[in-house]
Design a protein around this nucleic acid. Structure first.
Length: 493
RNA sequence: CGGGGCGUAGCGCAGUCUGGUAGCGCGUCUGCCUUGGGCGCAGAAGGUCGUCGGUUCGAAUCCGGCCGCCCCGACCA
């Protein structure tokens, strides 16, 4: 008698069979964690809160970088690189900056085999405003030197209390833009321009609808005059801040004496901006589109846009199919489609179907002996259940079409989801009832005290004041005091 | 740091209540077989049961300390 018979509970159960993911509806964070690991996007490492980004995950990041970098260059920015270590004293110059960042900063206290004296320590950059400003001060003399438009691709470290793969890791990869301008108006224009770039990237490439708007006083970046963000809704109806753009005013310029001589011969402080998105976007991508079968990546960013699965048993069959598949792959590649041919004979087709669904291949092409006979192939889009069969000559064009339609459909699906989970909320009762249901458009009296009370009592925080939400006066949901317009509240990552 | 859960084979877990010297599924390896939705059969390798100490003839199991991980909150991109 086997042990499985003696102990029925030893028989494989649905949840621990190593095959299926936890269901989104039952265990969203379990689903997310499992998906990240099973799709081989990233692993937890032995370093607290730091992850190993695996090739499948890094490929998505590379595609994001490629697109974003192009957008930055198109708007006149250049890449540069600044030190990972920042003198501790720099960070301390901007009061609000240091006060807010200090708790999350890792400090280098020993180097060269001995303790560094107080005052000569370094912090590992949590963000680079300070050290970049040090350079800006050297670079700027005249109004003719402006604007300075710099971007840096880098890693930063923030000692977060509760890390989560991609969403909040101790070390993460990002880009940070830093610019200097002669006037306040130019800096504001730049801040909003880059917010638009982020919106376009999120919506056109990630297929993720976002709300563009202004952050409240208490949610502002430490040291900024104004912070703007794009906010997205994940499938668990929680909000995720997907990108931020800051109008820094002259705060850092004053601390670092970043000045220029104007046409009129006056010494003036520069006006500055900074803006960034991070590997968090990969988490956003996953939580926006993926399903219980695994990863779904919008085609424009997908490392695997198309996979051709070869079917056949005899060497003759396989040989013929392989030749066709390779020719097809070459044509697809010529059409600009990222394609992979799977000719692994050790795994059955069923296994492969499940595997490519888990790993997020956008379109699957099945090619077997039966297809060759009829000169056809079978196509399957990752995000819909239907399969279709069509003539081999039409495959390249059709795959291209499917990728385009899929890109649009993913966006529309996500937008419909967000819109059906966005509500106007006017009373405390409604607030209580809908706190977990998505984005709440509420009147708020504008005070940090009320903001905090709402957060403490209902768990929702201000996300941003949307640009395209008409601001009409009303009464604060909590206090009844006057409000200038509705603002988005939600539970947030 | 507060609340909850968990550390047993590469992965997912059972066994702990009731102490007797470790098991299931998946994966891996070998051979045969199979390939249109997670193939099948046969065989094999693989674990000082997180760690330290205590109780006991005997500890994965009971008791105590420590370490680590995950989830929910506070911090945050």
């Amino acid at each position: 008698m086997s042990d499985a018979q003696k102990n029925p509970q030893n028989a494989p159960k649905k949840k621990n069979d190593n095959l299926s993911l936890p269901l989104r509806a039952e265990d969203f964070s379990g689903w997310y964690n499992d998906l990240v690991k099973r799709a081989k996007l990233a692993d937890n490492s032995d370093v607290r809160g730091s992850m190993v980004i695996r090739p499948n995950g890094y490929a998505i990041w590379e595609n994001m970088q490629k697109v974003l970098d192009g957008m930055f260059k198109d708007t006149g920015h250049q890449n540069a690189y600044f030190p990972v270590l920042i003198p501790e004293s720099y960070l301390a110059k901007e009061k609000k900056h240091v006060a807010d960042f200090a708790p999350q900063v890792a400090v280098v206290t020993h180097a060269g085999g001995k303790a560094l004296p107080e005052g000569e320590r370094y912090v590992i950059r949590p963000t680079s405003e300070t050290i970049i400003n040090r350079s800006f001060t050297n670079w700027v003399q005249s109004y003719r030197d402006l604007p300075i438009l710099i971007n840096q691709w880098a890693n930063v470290i923030r000692w977060e209390m509760r890390p989560r793969l991609f969403l909040r890791t101790t070390e993460f990869l990002w880009q940070e833009g830093h610019t200097c301008h002669a006037t306040e108006a130019e800096a504001t224009e730049e801040t909003l321009r880059m917010l638009d770039v982020y919106e376009r990237f999120a919506e056109d490439y990630m297929a993720m609808p976002v709300i563009k708007g202004q952050k409240t006083e208490s949610e502002k970046f430490p040291g900024a005059v104004n912070t703007y963000s794009i906010e997205a809704m994940m499938q668990d109806k929680k909000a995720l801040q997907a990108g931020t753009s800051h109008m820094l005013g002259q705060n850092f310029a004053k601390m670092f004496d970043t000045m220029y001589q104007s046409k009129e011969g006056q010494k003036e402080y520069v006006w500055q901006t900074s803006w960034g998105v991070s590997t968090r976007l990969i988490g956003a991508l996953i939580m926006t589109h993926s399903d219980d079968q695994g990863l779904i990546v919008p085609p424009k960013l997908a490392p695997m846009q198309c996979v051709i699965v070869i079917i056949g048993k005899t060497p003759e069959e396989r040989g013929a199919v392989r030749a066709k598949a390779q020719a097809l792959a070459a044509d697809l590649k010529k059409a600009g489609i990222r394609v992979l041919v799977d000719d692994d004979e050790t795994k059955g087709p069923g296994f492969k179907y499940a595997e490519y669904e888990l790993r997020g291949a956008c379109v699957r092409v099945d090619l077997g002996p039966k297809d060759l006979e009829k000169n056809q192939a079978m196509l399957k889009r990752r995000d819909v259940a239907e399969k279709e069969t069509l003539g081999l000559d039409a495959v390249v064009a059709r795959v291209g079409e499917l990728l385009e339609v899929m890109q649009k459909d993913l966006f529309n699906k996500a937008k419909t989801f967000r819109d059906t989970h966005t509500f106007e909320v006017n009373t405390v009762e409604e607030l209580k009832a809908k706190a977990d249901d998505g984005f709440l458009l509420m009147h708020w009296d504008g005070t940090p005290e009320t903001e905090k009370r709402i957060k403490d009592e209902f768990g929702v925080t201000t996300r941003n004041r949307p640009f395209d939400l008409k601001q009409e006066p009303g009464k604060c949901v909590l206090t009844g005091n006057p409000s200038t317009g509705r603002i988005v509240f939600a539970k947030a990552y």
